[in-house]
Design a protein around this nucleic acid. Structure first.
Lengths: 225, 225
DNA sequence: TGGCCGGCAATTGTTGACAATTTTATTGAG
DNA sequence: CTCAATAAAATTGTCAACAATTGCCGGCCA
């Protein structure tokens, strides 16, 4: 029963901070914790069955992921999510994705290609089933397929930190416009083709198009809650 | 003297975590704490006259700034700094600076220009005096002058987090090659001119050139310690 | 002699209590 | 009735002690 939903480190394989951050972060992404909601350390600690220490560190992790904002001496609140915020997020994300795609196009070796093809296959399957939720989840695997060839820990970390924020803005975007998923998939296919053809300029353009499409979807989703 | 160099929050205006992170971060940047050096929580806490709690959080801040790496259950160590690391750092920094310059070129209003001119004037003075240390410190003010017009908190935060790492790689770069400073200044002048002329493509190119120059200087500085 | 196993020391992870500060409620005067 | 000063409550910041894990060292056995 739901007496105390105790979070254990073993439940996630990582340490307690990360497990807590994961739990409460997911609730922010799903919108169960609305923008502006205050996250009190004591309250979270009690409801999760842990001490305030790990909760504190989890909140700092969530701040790094831009899901909460921490004001000195005033605690943590769930970040707002305006159309403006979405714009600013993609302003930064698009160049980073372009860097990722360019570097991948330039430096891939034969053994790096199968994961890229797998991404497209997975997206294909999800799209064929009309499973929009699965589709946009698997969309993040593109970056993970590129990571080994780019081999840039800083970039990896930036993507890891920005992924929750992207998840959040995309969470309700796709269900509305399934047609957009087809367009997205088509451009993703083209992107992978360009990457494998070492067409860096083309890959840049594709990333731009795809990013703008996602931005538009995210903005639409915000307009009608 | 020097019994206990107690760190106070008031000494920095911000809270204790930040003051500690500033103190030990500066020692990493200056090279007093060598790459690979272990940072023990207990030891730092005692030497700074504070408890382990704030030290812990300060170490997480330094991890965010890429000055230390934290291994679970094994503590914090000062990050290595290879030529490869410098390359990867600038791979990410250059596109972010390009974004910053482009957005500034597109959206500046008259009242935004004086700070930009001031940056050049300050760099001019530092270069005229041959004060390389002052020069590269003031170099970071360019981003701060652009920030208000770009108005992107995410980008601001990324720059704030990456600045210490850049400081670190540039710390000993300039003294060796004063001639490079003249070249750098010349390109910075051109950059500001392009930004004020709303020449986004030109600004992109300038940022690229300037970034590559800095990267080269940083790599050279690493080669001869 | 080389590799494996057990105990020990060092260090981080976690906890609960105390202190400082901010926010809110209350009371009083204008 | 509104506003200001004050008092009380709530909440974060900091601390010191305890628990758990890791790595190391010595001894044992093949």
């Amino acid at each position: 029963m739901g007496g105390k939903p105790t979070v254990k480190a073993s439940s996630d394989g990582r340490n307690l901070n990360e497990a807590i951050a994961e739990t409460v972060g997911e609730r922010v992404i799903r919108g169960e914790l609305a923008p502006g909601a205050r996250l009190l350390e004591t309250q979270l600690a009690e409801s999760l069955g842990v001490s305030r220490g790990p909760v504190r560190e989890a909140l700092r992790l969530l701040e790094k992921r831009r899901l909460v904002r921490i004001l000195p001496r005033r605690g943590a609140v769930v970040t707002e999510l305006s159309a403006r915020d979405v714009d600013r997020l993609y302003d930064v994300v698009i160049p980073l994705y372009q860097l990722l795609a360019e570097k991948t196009a330039e430096h891939w070796r034969p053994e790096d290609l199968p994961p890229l093809y797998t991404v497209i296959e997975d997206l294909n399957r999800a799209a064929a089933r009309g499973d929009v939720s699965d589709y946009f989840e698997r969309n993040f695997t593109f970056a993970r397929a590129c990571a080994p060839v780019v081999d840039n820990p800083l970039l990896d970390e930036l993507f890891a930190d920005l992924e929750p924020a992207l998840r959040r803005v995309l969470y309700r975007s796709w269900t509305q416009r399934a047609a957009a998923m087809d367009q997205h998939l088509d451009w993703m296919r083209q992107l992978v083709r360009q990457v494998t053809d070492r067409d860096t300029a083309g890959a840049r353009d594709s990333i731009r198009r795809i990013g703008e499409l996602e931005r538009e979807l995210a903005r639409d989703a915000l307009a009608r809650p």
